[in-house]
Design a protein around this nucleic acid. Structure first.
Lengths: 214, 214
DNA sequence: CTGCATCCGGGCCGATACTG
DNA sequence: CAGTATCGGCCCGGATGCAG
């Protein structure tokens, strides 16, 4: 890519990872080393030549490295993009309840969304277990305990709350951006006391309108 | 821009701010509302039609708004990109000591770099005042007091340390990525006890090699 | 002077075909 | 499995024009 030619941290960062697909490729590698075809599967829509070109570019930039086992992995510096990727994911919160037909969807993306939203310790967080059954993804269980949230990639035995249905309203309800009625009108089957979901979020962030796009 | 068509927070965020120049435009607006020509001056290298097109795109996306006084300003949601921009700026730290001739440079970018690196409270931070005189930028003073860092856009009366010279080695020395000898070899005039700069950074981050690109 | 719109050449992107 | 080759089209960058 053409350089911005600005002595500014943001500009120099974008010179390295600002090209199309680059950050999504980093997202895939945040889950660990991946082979070329695994990356191709995790990036629906990317052309094969573009993936190869981005892999070369990010390797030259010191973000990723090709390992002996023919897998690509983030360098220690590249792993620092975790904060950038999650900051962008959190910022996109207000967009996640919006329906947009035709979007691809994968279990690992749902896990990233949940982690980005709930990572870190919060002493006010209430204990809770939530089973998520999004259409097109494996069942997943969010467990809040001791102020921290953990996510397991399997169904729960006795969840406090279960949300099943299309990804957008399920996530929208989980993030507190839509009401239970709105979610159910959009195909969500909710079981348990949905109001307890607000206990996952800090006091100041329990209103759905907070940081709304509108 | 063409959508990634992925139901993922990162992908939906990049659908809104992933185009070339968009985040740099946001960077300029983090300093407050700006007129079209002010933005043009703050984004050396951008074509006039592209700036107009990005302004339209970001306005349609709900990131910025055109105000009555013909200025552009971030919406409350758009201001949330502060964390994204600074996370990218911090990640670029290892790149900032590298010389790259021809890069444009502005005082406000230097201020952003310093804030991105030192913002927040750190009880172990030592009190210190540092005057920065980068070629091509107005003199600036970094003041650490009570665990916090504040930055003033003027010269200091009696700074503990003064760094003057080209931006890259001045910033490289401030961030602890190069030694005093390396900085002076690259044209930096340093006065005062440069070793005290390490007191600006938390204990664990006082080695220049930390998070190196190599 | 501000705030764009238009035009054009070149480069990047996207889709498909193909190869070691 | 892991890419390369090719090609059409869109986007970007630079120059210029122009209305308020």
């Amino acid at each position: 890519m053409r350089s911005y030619a600005q002595y500014c941290g943001l500009a120099r960062a974008l010179d390295v990872i600002g090209e199309r697909w680059s950050l999504l490729l980093v997202r895939e590698l945040l889950d660990g080393p991946r082979r070329y075809n695994e990356l191709l599967a995790g990036l629906p829509g990317v052309a094969t030549n573009l993936l190869a070109e981005r892999l070369r570019s990010l390797e030259a930039g010191g973000v990723i490295a090709r390992r002996d086992d023919a897998r690509y992995a983030l360098t220690p510096w590249g792993q620092g993009l975790h904060e950038v990727v999650y900051a962008l994911g959190r910022w996109a919160g207000p967009l996640m309840a919006q329906p947009r037909g035709g979007d691809a969807f994968q279990s690992s993306w749902l896990r990233h969304m949940v982690i980005a939203r709930f990572e870190g310790h919060d002493p006010l967080r209430r204990d809770l277990s939530v089973e998520l059954r999004c259409d097109g993804a494996d069942p997943m269980t969010l467990v809040a305990a001791g102020g921290r949230v953990h996510i397991a990639t399997r169904a729960a035995s006795t969840p406090d709350v279960t949300l099943a249905g299309p990804p957008e309203p399920v996530v929208g309800l989980l993030l507190g951006r839509i009401t239970r009625a709105q979610a159910e009108a959009r195909g969500v089957r909710a079981r348990g006391d949905v109001r307890r979901l607000t206990g996952l979020r800090p006091r100041g962030e329990r209103q759905a309108a907070t940081l709304s796009r509108a």
